[in-house]
Design a protein around this nucleic acid. Structure first.
Lengths: 339, 339
DNA sequence: ACTTGGCACTCGGGAACACAGAGTGCTAGA
DNA sequence: TCTAGCACTCTGTGTTCCCGAGTGCCAAGT
């Protein structure tokens, strides 16, 4: 049905449309790409492509524009991810290497990605449940108040102020701290509930109320943060790229953590580390018409931590964008693994 | 020069223009506000006001629009801050009270403010230098690595991984921790450099390299974070309020921490806790034409922590916006003082 | 069987134009 | 000092018209 030349025509249409943002006609097409055939032939192919639903025309007597289905075919079969230049790679590396803590890594990553792709970048904070406990700290603030600080191997620090049911002296706090650490050190966060389940029973009765309070806060911290934080950057790029219509809806979606999470996450069912692309209507969220999402998981190989990606107009340069997303994901994984 | 009626006319013009977003004419003005005079009289007053530079007309034979100078007069003398309704106050209180940590307080605050004013809200994280040390913690991660955790009275936690110049055993770490805490506990962050200056000399020579390393990181943490983090929310509101032109510039400014900081901060020279309003060209930043900023300091009375505010079109409802900003600042101060 | 040139057709978008309506400034009178 | 009336000046909108890009189709060529 679709011979090689028709595919070449589709590729040319996508490339031209992406770069000019104007419906592309048969004549210009035959000229710019050396297809070795006449405009009339191109027209025939275009008619076939339109028949199949890969392209469409905004109105009679205008050029053709790729449909979502057309873009899909393009990314799946007609394009190959474009690697970054050496200079870009070096820039990424030095920029990310300068980060001082997890917060900083995430902030830098999202800005970097936004600048690199000239689109809106989205980065999910590393998921807690897949990291492991590196240290638990109890800090006495007052007679009946302690601060619980949980440090993970990804450099994340969670803290909660706890009101205790009774006055507790320093040495008891120190003891509890030691018990907690010996119990949890190095364990995956997902296992924490099981590991602490019988802890109250293994301690003297007098300690139980205090321990119960602390544990309930600890567990709460774990589940609460399961739906993770997401940050974005580069909203200004939206305004730039002829995106005037629906801009408000897109901005709203960006500020809704839950929506954003779904958009990034929905793509991760199969192989989490794969680069996934959702084009236009594929993401099935009203208000995001005409936007595509390129996302991937990041984290060091075996344990995926979270996802990152960019959001931009359906009419985007997929090869370049995909290259940037993939490269940034790799570098940030590397940085996180090292720290 | 400007009698009472002329001022009343100016006020009416501002109010009408804010609510309709259309140049307001003499006829409509005389009708809607009961000025008890005829349109012709109003026209005369308008001519005078225009002469003085308080209003202007986009083109001959259109209504009048307030100038920046006009808004300024309105804010300074013709309006009074509109307090929030009881329901709104209760909503704020319960929403903010649900925050679990400092991060959460800031996030909730900025969203709340954005929703309340239907504009872009900006909140600066509490300035470290004005808070005090509540606890310093050293956590051993490996033979030659420790994590420094600094906990402030505002609930902020700063952390850094430190590579030590030599292998250090547990008990030395514990000792250093005790020394640091006894030295710094309860001190203002601004005083830390002085307090630790002679610390190496007061310790055995063998400890000095390690202490020096730790202190340099500690001091670095303090200065680095002096230019503080800023967050914003409600960008979608920009797209809504007939703000199409220059939107890109505004979004860019919002993502530039430094610019944002200046915009919030410039206003704080005199009395930090006062509500300050910068109207249009007053903020002197290219790209923010047509935007005003309403900001105030927050923090518990004597020690101001940081600033928050909103950014919106010059054509905004100042009394309501100012009321919301002031109220939110008060509540968040209260929350922070309590925690 | 595919490709090509020719040709009539179809719209969208811009230019030219007219026109209604809102708003003004000015002047004369109360 | 205020008011009524009046002529004037704009903008925004609706209408019409035309150009040109681009198409679809057909018949001829390879």
């Amino acid at each position: 049905m679709l011979d090689d030349r028709k595919l070449a025509v589709l590729r040319a249409i996508v490339e031209d449309y992406v770069s000019t943002n104007e419906p592309v006609g048969s004549k210009a097409l035959a000229e710019r790409h050396n297809l070795k055939v006449s405009p009339a032939t191109v027209r025939n192919d275009m008619a076939a492509l339109e028949e199949e639903g890969y392209i469409t025309q905004p109105h009679t007597s205008a050029g053709r524009v790729p449909t979502d289905k057309g873009y899909r075919l393009f990314v799946d079969r007609l394009s190959q991810i474009k690697p970054l230049s050496g200079a870009e790679r070096r820039a990424i590396e030095t920029f990310l290497a300068g980060a001082v803590d997890l917060d900083d890594v995430v902030t830098r990553t999202v800005r970097l990605l936004a600048q690199l792709t000239r689109q809106v970048a989205v980065v999910q904070y590393p998921t807690l449940t897949r990291s492991t406990v590196r240290h638990v700290e109890l800090v006495q603030l007052a007679e009946r108040r302690v601060m619980l600080v949980l440090i993970t191997n990804t450099g994340r620090v969670e803290q909660r102020v706890i009101e205790l049911p009774e006055v507790v002296e320093d040495h008891r706090i120190a003891h509890l701290r030691a018990v907690l650490n010996s119990c949890l050190d190095g364990c995956g966060l997902g296992n924490v509930p099981d590991l602490v389940a019988d802890l109250p029973e293994r301690l003297p009765a007098e300690d139980r109320p205090v321990v119960a309070t602390i544990l309930s806060v600890l567990l709460e911290t774990l589940v609460e943060r399961h739906d993770e934080k997401i940050v974005f950057a580069g909203a200004a790029n939206l305004a730039g790229a002829g995106f005037s219509v629906g801009l408000r809806d897109v901005l709203e979606a960006l500020e809704e953590q839950v929506v954003l999470m779904r958009l990034l996450g929905e793509t991760s069912t199969d192989t989490p580390s794969a680069l996934t692309v959702r084009i236009g209507s594929e993401n099935a969220y009203t208000g995001l018409v005409g936007t595509s999402i390129v996302a991937t998981g990041y984290g060091s190989g075996d344990n995926q931590l979270a996802r990152l990606g960019v959001l931009g107009p359906t009419r985007m340069d997929y090869p370049v964008t995909m290259g940037a997303v993939r490269a940034v994901a790799r570098y940030v994984s590397q940085i996180l693994a090292a720290s």
